[in-house]
Nucleic acid binder design. Sequence first.
RNA 1: GUCCCCGUAGCUCAGAUGGAUAGAGCGACUGCCUCCUAAGCAGUAGGCCCCAGGUUCGAGUCCUGGCGGGGACACCA
Length: 574
Amino acid sequence: MVSQATRAPERMFARRISNALREAAAGLGAPDAGVRLDRPKDPAHGDLASNLALTLASRLRRRPRDIALDLRERLDGIEGVERIEVAGPGFLNFFLDSATVGGTLRRILATRGGYGGSRDGGGRRIMVEFVSANPTGPLHLGHGRQAALGDVIARLLEWSGWRVHREFYFNDAGRQILRLAESVRARYQQLLGHDEPIPDGGYHGEYVREIAGAFLECEGRRYEQERGEAALEAMRGFAVNELRKEQERDLAEFRVEFDEYYPESSLHSDGRVAETVRALDETGLTYHRDGAHWLQTTRFGDQKDRVMVRSDGSATYFLPDVAYHMSKWERGFHEVVNVQGSDHHGTVDRVRAGLQALGRPAGYPEYVLHQMVTVERGGEEVRFSKRAGSYTTLAELVAEVGADVARYFFLMRRPEAHLVFDLDLALDQSDKNPVYKIKYAHARLCRLSRLARRRGWDGMEGPDAPEADASLLAAPAERELINRLGEFPGFLRRAARGRAPHVVCDYLERTAGLVNSWYQAGHPTRSPELAALVEGDEPLRNARLTLAVAARTVLANGLAVLGIEAPQRMVRSE
RNA sequence: GUCCCCGUAGCUCAGAUGGAUAGAGCGACUGCCUCCUAAGCAGUAGGCCCCAGGUUCGAGUCCUGGCGGGGACACCA
């Protein structure tokens, strides 16, 4: 729980106003009215607004506007409220006095790097599983989006008081891996001058040749005549290892790290898969038909029953998936978010059904399914990889636009919306590019504090900074910015609960716009009286510098949530 | 055929629990630098919120049915 001193002032007032409204409604003959307060979009509609009169209209059989006027009569002298207006069809708009609004600044300055966080999670554990690419090639753009989404959902959860475990699951045992090994063998033989084609369904990317080359360098020609299991196994292990290392390197460049890499093969070797079959058989929900071993997943809402073990004795993907999620549960993760491409959506119902058969709750695990990514340059779709065949790799993209821009662009759209990555915009270093817009706003605010100190004025930072009189910040641009800063924790909470990083992007972009407006409004030539570094009026200057520090804190915290750097100063690069 | 997602400005997209004249960026146009970074700001133009019903005092938002786009539906991997 947040302490009384740092609680959002508007929330305290919201409760006070709600109570007064409820009482007033009772006075009009409508006890137990559901009272709601909103923060209006338009600042002309006050700091808080209520639609109570509109909701009471049908119940009281009176015109909403008349009810609103009556309600206002009954609401006098609420502490901290400057005035109440009746507007539009019957809204009640509350204007808080400026000393009250200033409480927001005190709260930001008091919590600084922690401002925006909450205790939603209460210290409970939660797992975010994401990327989970098969080690059959380099990471492509879909993985990039997933890496950014998963990492930032994890950060949002950390900010919300959860203990987060980041996990990467990889299939190192299936048929795809066999094709990979065979492809490496073909390239290996080709390098030795033999004519061996890539098998059907194999991998043609240039990277396979590179792996074969590296293998040749390590092992020499000893597998030239060897056609059996041992050679294939050696190449499989080598290739998986190489590709995993490369993926980890690419992810590190992208500033994404995992607590655990979980190999599918271990589910077989440690008996979990067999154990899962046994446990499912015990439920009586399995049966044999056409030589295969089935589970009645339809009992739990799946569209059709699923095969667990094929007639040839091999497990389908479904089975290890269930075993894997049982492992998550048994490791203590009763809250799990899986971030996956929407092409996996077909597996959701059946995995959950399998887990329900084993007694896990119906919604376990939770899924965030994201749509595909395409890249455009000059309005045309581009595919730019010689190396990876038809793929566009994450590494190439990060090399071109940088990790910060790539992260932001992957995050700025709702996961379930198709994402068009505009390379022209990504490479732009002006404020057109939202990432730069936010960074510039932050750097600009840092500069204000620097300049103030250089002139011998206090930058309003540190424990010895004088208390600012926020009631002096009455200009519209200031008032709007302060209110906006006060909304940050609410946005983070909403983003975390909705697993929706784009909410943070939207918030930051708009807030940066307000910062720029405020900054520009105080242009020293045209409006010196609005300038932050105002001469001669120390209390006013201190108040504005405090606002600058508060705004910068919010931008920095928001960027930290996104895993993006917040520079003190910007250097133009080519 | 069944299931999931999407349909909002010329383009790319936001629009939490239904609320006031539907927002942002890009693109277009008009202004604003002797002075804290103009890498900026202020403003103008641009909308049958896919269509049709329904619920409601009130629908871009909720319900039903269409239309259009993407994805998923195999003992495939």
